[in-house]
Design a protein around this nucleic acid. Structure first.
Length: 106
DNA sequence: ACCGTGACGTGTC
DNA sequence: TGACACGCCACGG
């Protein structure tokens, strides 16, 4: 497994429960050069139960990766189970729930 | 080696 | 504001 993929997965595991982040923040934190890399790496996380992939959304707070989950509704269900409200496949109060890995440096 | 593809993001019009 | 174009870069065919 490539290094950066593990890094992305590790960062995902660091996301606090009930909070969310986006691909760009992770890509920036790991200096991947492209947010696509983060998204692509998360796609590789599919099937790994130890990775809270549902806490990673795009910059608008949309659950863009839900189709890669076991069922298209699983991502939303997992978030709601953590207290994150979802509306029209988007995170409600995304701005407040947003968490950046750079928080770790503080 | 070339090309299409993608869980993205920013800049333009 | 919202739709669109373009840059991004690793991977598989």
């Amino acid at each position: 497994m490539a290094r950066y993929i593990e890094d992305v997965h590790d960062v995902a595991r660091l996301i606090p429960k009930g909070r969310v982040t986006n691909y760009g923040a992770i890509a920036d934190f790991l200096t991947l050069g492209s947010a696509r890399m983060a998204g692509w790496a998360m796609n590789k996380a599919h099937g790994d139960e130890t990775i809270p992939a549902h806490r990673v959304v795009n910059r608008k707070g949309e659950l863009s990766g839900r189709n890669s989950f076991a069922t298209p509704t699983l991502m939303q269900e997992l978030l709601e189970a953590e207290g994150v409200e979802i509306s029209a496949s988007k995170v409600v109060n995304f701005k407040e729930l947003f968490w950046s890995p750079t928080e770790l440096l503080k």
